[in-house]
Design a protein around this nucleic acid. Sequence first.
DNA 1: GCGACAG
DNA 2: ATCTTGTCGC
Length: 222
Amino acid sequence: MALHPVFEHRWDLTPKEAIALQQELRGRVEITDRYGEIRWVAGVDVGFEARNTITRAAVAVLAYPSLELHEHAIARQPTRMPYIPGLLSFREVPAVLEAMARLDSRPDLLLCDGQGIAHPRRFGIASHLGVLLDVPAIGVAKTRLVGTHDAVPEGRGESVPLVDRGERIGAVLRTRSRVKPLFISPGHRMGLEHAVEWVMACTTRYRLPETTRRAHRLASCD
DNA sequence: GCGACAG
DNA sequence: ATCTTGTCGC
């Protein structure tokens, strides 16, 4: 099993080249539901070691709906470029792909740290991973990259549209009452409505979904 | 030219 | 992201 890219492209690109590639690949993003039974949900996160010289990617595969940890994979690579707003995936995805290739199971859905289409060119890290691996993916970000929104009602499960240039690109979702909301957007093969539902379905008593929490601990701690 | 800016 | 202790609130 494991998840492997369905096509390849270069990663050693200049910012201009990376932006051009995003413009090209954005055409492959599907924001309508295209998935079957979801049995394995994977959380994806990345951390850094040795003064940011090492990039450490972590994937935690949980069973759905029990949300119990099924398996996990870690991958370390030399950090290849700095963080540039809008180009996050070129810094983090290579390491994530290596971790994905190490899995024994095959995730049915990815919950990624960062944006999906809620991105200047509608191609955030969740879309990039989703398209490369041809798997349903959702962007789950803790803060905003682009877009504006109204105040979010205080109750758990409440959400408001995230809009950019007149386009509805995501939702600002309150996963816990009176706690800072998350920015949810479709990554690939997933519509906004269901993206929000899947995030809620993977969230128990904390602000972040269990998938993200498990991946985060794997990417940061030992 | 002046801010804003996922992780 | 990461550097870091205590502390305010439910």
